[in-house]
Design a protein around this nucleic acid. Structure first.
Lengths: 167, 167
DNA sequence: ACGAGGATAGTCAAGTATGACTATTCTATA
DNA sequence: TATAGAATAGTCATACTTGACTATCCTCGT
């Protein structure tokens, strides 16, 4: 959860925004490096408001329904830095759900197993291709994308090795 | 959530067990490749029971309080295979929370940033060392451990590169 | 013979996450 | 100039997760 708060605070630190803008940006630019969903973001924004880390202002533009503009507060900025420090120092083992299936893959017959792994490989390659097509960001977002790419490629290379061993 | 169900079903497929046994095994052997927590496992076991994927039997041993022994059902085995197939075919981008902090690391002064990254590197190395010390399992769990190791090392190597670029 | 601490076996309240849904406004085109 | 569909801006019920807690039983050293 902390990383989600970190993300929202970080984005708001750059610029006050309303929910849609935030979610749109995340969806279009950061989908590969975060899994923060729209509804989650709204809920979290509300919690951040309750904690005084962001301030909300209603804004009306033209005929559109009023929308909430979120801005980071002073204490939000402090919290942001604190979170950033702890999260940046942290290295959790990458426990991705996909590992689970690997633990049981021998329960499938070799043929089927190999089919599945090949599908997996295809999807991995697809992800890698997608990532390669993202124009390099000007910001430090690049670091996250770069890391993602490195991990995806390592995963792919490993998977290729596994496939070879299946014969 | 599916991967958690897959894990429990997979373990029960091998052998009927009670909750403690399951959790103990996960904690001692699989902590590096899954993040399923005790309370989560119990809750999930209950849900699996409701769905008829596992059956529960009360068992009393000596004077000990009765405990619930979970066994996979026929439909549980079917579901297991189904889950296994879909999960094994799947390759999600590895969206680990740690990437978030990287997106904002330039908000810290270089000195502090480098300190944080070094701490991160240390922890990564620690994780790698821990993983290296795990005796190789006989089962396919090895695949999951192997993958974890590959990813951790890729992460580390990348991080070292990042640190070098910080000068 | 007994008390501390670990092993055993969970439960629960509170926090988090999200798919599906609602509702309005704009815009391009037929 | 209707009107279908996209963009805007969220909400909500439901499901999932987990830290903290409870409670009993066993064992080992004194």
């Amino acid at each position: 959860m902390d990383h989600h708060a970190l993300l929202l605070l970080g984005l708001l630190k750059n610029q006050a925004q309303h929910g849609y803008q935030l979610n749109d940006f995340i969806e279009k630019n950061l989908a590969r490096v975060t899994n923060l969903k729209k509804a989650t973001a709204y809920a979290l924004l509300e919690r951040l408001r309750e904690s005084g880390l962001v301030a909300v202002k209603l804004e009306q533009e033209g005929n559109r329904p009023p929308r909430k503009v979120y801005a980071i507060t002073k204490s939000g900025e402090t919290e942001f830095l604190e979170l950033l420090r702890t999260e940046l120092c942290n290295a959790e083992p990458i426990s991705s759900p996909e590992s689970t299936a690997l633990m049981f893959m021998t329960e499938l017959e070799p043929d089927e197993r190999i089919d599945c792994l090949n599908t997996r490989l295809e999807k991995l390659n697809q992800h890698i291709a997608n990532l390669e097509n993202i124009p390099t960001h000007k910001s430090a977002v690049n670091f996250a994308l770069e890391r993602q790419m490195v991990l995806l490629k390592a995963d792919r290379d490993w998977l290729i090795g596994v496939l070879e061993r299946q014969q």
